[in-house]
Nucleic acid binder design. Structure first.
Lengths: 207, 207
DNA sequence: TCTCAAGCGGAGGCTTATGCTCCGTTTGTG
DNA sequence: CACAAACGGAGCATAAGCCTCCGCTTGAGA
């Protein structure tokens, strides 16, 4: 692969990730090309169909995030590896993977799934060491949180501001995880007393 | 207004809100009509242009949410009005307002803005009474959180499951707010040490 | 019960956005 | 220096969504 081709490939992936985060949903290939500052033909040459582009973008982000996580886990000096990982996941654009998720095939990447699994386990294990008083964290607590906080709060907010809010809120969430044991009872009670969901009475969309 | 017309209007608004939440972005009028189980003509008769439909939908949700909040604030028995409000806001579909926000005119609804303002103030005031040890909550802490947790976590997840996760995460966040004073220093430190944002080096989208 | 204005449904033509191909031009690399 | 590899983007094809129009249905006042 020629060097300029490799570079363009990366530009396209970054552009796609950016668009997914900032505009939401599936970006058009024309928009990707424009943002990546390459021709449309180049996008099509690298990624012949929509699926392959989205797939590669998600993988790109996922790998980047996992690598960041692995380096954090292995840093013995970190006092709160779990929290650091979650913040890093946001900064690496993990939200993209989630937004794209429904468009991807679940059986993709058995390799990455395994790596992500080990990473999560290690983070939880590590957290148990850093904070011996709370031992009930689940993988879902972590994974879903990175997804939630990794998405833009509002389309249209300046990305920097948006990210700042996300980090602030994530910090609160992590605090909450840490105080979890004290409050489990109360929040569980809330969950059952809550008002019913919104949903119109009759109609389904039957296809 | 004839009774069937009023009913249809409501079906259309609920359908729009549901689509915005579950599919994201601006739903097509055809899709709204199908989901509401009315003819396309009916949608156009009630809402002659896109703006008026989205506008009415957002207002619909907003009013519903504010009313829920007002009733919670005035309930003297509630031990945690603020938390209850935030959970209620999710259940009332507050996420819709946020998703639609960039499409709306900021100067709309001075009336509702005032009401929402009073509500927030009352909630914060009330929280200060319920939890005298923490007095530093801001309107942003509340508003942004309802927005964040009110959006679907993942397009494609069953709505019920999605909502359950949201409530669980929100509960953690609220716990975090409550433990805020203890941890402010630590999290503030994190904020400055964090790794830089993702963003490709060169290209802007000029135009 | 009857009447009819108010309201409904949805076929179908128009417009716009996006998908994708194709080929002449440019460029990295041996 | 030669040339395979890679690029750009005009332009046609297709799909998605917009909106009108008019004949049919129905709620509600007399």
């Amino acid at each position: 692969m020629r060097s300029d081709a490799r570079q363009n490939r990366k530009r396209i992936l970054d552009a796609t990730a950016g668009l997914v985060l900032e505009v939401g949903g599936e970006p058009s290939r024309d928009a990707v090309a424009e943002r990546a500052a390459v021709g449309i033909g180049t996008v099509y040459r690298h990624f012949p169909d929509r699926q392959s582009l989205l797939h590669a973008t998600a993988r790109h982000v996922l790998v980047r995030t996992i690598e960041a996580g692995e380096s954090i886990v292995s840093d013995v000096d970190s006092a709160d590896a779990l929290g650091e990982y979650m913040h890093a996941a946001i900064d690496n654009g993990i939200g993209v993977v989630n937004i794209l998720h429904p468009l991807l095939d679940d059986t993709d990447w058995p390799d990455l799934q395994a790596r992500a699994g080990s990473l999560m386990t290690a983070l939880i294990e590590r957290n148990r060491r850093d904070h011996p008083d709370r031992t009930d964290l689940s993988v879902g607590d972590i994974a879903f949180a990175t997804i939630r906080f990794g998405r833009p709060l509002a389309i249209g907010l300046p990305p920097d501001e948006d990210r700042a809010i996300a980090h602030g809120q994530l910090a609160r969430y992590i605090d909450g995880l840490h105080s979890r044991i004290d409050t489990t009872t109360r929040t569980a009670t809330r969950a059952t007393t809550r008002t019913p969901p919104l949903r119109r009475p009759g109609e389904q969309t039957p296809t």
